[in-house]
């Protein structure tokens, strides 16, 4: 045969054999024994690698799960995306008990829309909240409020949060939100909080993070919490879900029964809810709930205004 063909065949063949040999030896020598359950456990997980569980991706979480299961308890671990169902499945597979946990969702604790907290300045710089936050207090002058530049939107893997073009506030789509908590970490002002979804999607929270005194806060934002404490007094005696610290009210989601009594008493309308407080006694029809879920932020605002 022609040597022009033979030589390449021989050299390439020899090189291939050599490489195969090296690969084989390396694979043999550096083989890592791994628990086969990790791969199986990972199969139960959503596989979106959002990092919401606090581990590097779903596989990292699966490793942690297997390790914890060997110790007999995986209750400290939670996949926020898959939620309770996924955790139960994994728990059954790994043979450990999993406690039921409430589904959660991200809520935005600022209601300083363009209208309520009108911009006094314009910011000319990189459109990143984290940069803007490090440099000045925001176009509205509130050192605690939403900067509206959308760092939370940029990190959301599920397209569940967007900046409303009119209010310049983030709006969480409760249907898409898996409460992975990535936006919580991305927000330089810690405005976003993961709270229980609540029974029948009824949630009440204080839409403000301001720690300034009332007068100062009101200068910047008409819907700021001024720390008057009226809501805390309105909260039923047995519940006492509202605490007041540093001029700011906070509703404890674990205690709150979403009765809505605090909403109408707030003088500034800083308390937000996913339902109309007026219909709190009448059983809300599922259609109504859908409606309010869709509009989350806006509905809450309207609810406050009426």
């Amino acid at each position: 045969m022609n040597p022009v063909i033979i030589f390449p065949i021989l050299t390439l063949g020899a090189a291939a054999a050599g490489a195969a040999m090296i690969l084989f030896l390396v694979a043999k020598k550096f083989k890592v024994e791994e628990d086969p359950r990790i791969d199986d456990a990972a199969d139960f997980l959503p596989g979106v690698n959002c990092g919401g569980c606090g581990f590097p991706g779903c596989r990292g979480f699966a490793e942690a799960l297997v390790e914890a299961a060997d110790k007999g308890n995986i209750s400290g671990l939670m996949c926020p995306v898959g939620g309770s169902d996924t955790m139960t499945e994994v728990g059954v597979f790994l043979g450990v008990e999993v406690a039921e946990s409430d589904p959660t969702v991200a809520v935005v604790r600022c209601n300083g829309s363009r209208e309520k907290a009108p911009p006094k300045l314009s910011f000319d710089g990189p459109a990143k909240c984290y940069v803007s936050h490090a440099l000045f207090c925001g176009e509205h002058g509130c050192a605690f409020g939403c900067l509206g530049l959308g760092d939370c939107v940029a990190v959301c893997e599920f397209d569940a949060i967007r900046i409303d073009t009119e209010t310049r506030l983030p709006v969480v789509d409760a249907k898409k939100c898996v409460s992975c908590g990535v936006c919580v970490k991305a927000c330089p002002r810690n405005i976003i909080e993961i709270r229980p979804k609540g029974r029948k999607e009824r949630r009440v929270w204080v839409g403000c993070m301001n720690l300034e005194k009332g007068g100062v806060a009101m200068k910047n934002c008409k819907v700021a919490c001024i720390g008057c404490g009226k809501c805390a007094k309105a909260c039923p005696e047995k519940i006492r879900a509202i605490g007041l610290e540093k001029n700011l009210a906070y509703i404890d989601p674990q205690k709150c029964i979403a009765c809505g009594l605090c909403i109408p008493v707030c003088p500034t309308g800083a308390i937000l809810a996913t339902f109309q407080p007026a219909v709190k006694k009448a059983k809300a029809s599922p259609g109504n709930l859908e409606q309010s879920k869709k509009e989350t932020g806006e509905a809450a605002q309207k609810g406050v205004e009426t």
């Binding site: 990189p126 984290y130 490090a134 440099l135």
Partner: peptide
């Protein structure tokens, strides 16, 4: 470009 803005951050 906002060089210094980011560098400062």
């Amino acid at each position: 470009r906002f060089l210094l803005d980011y560098i400062r951050y």
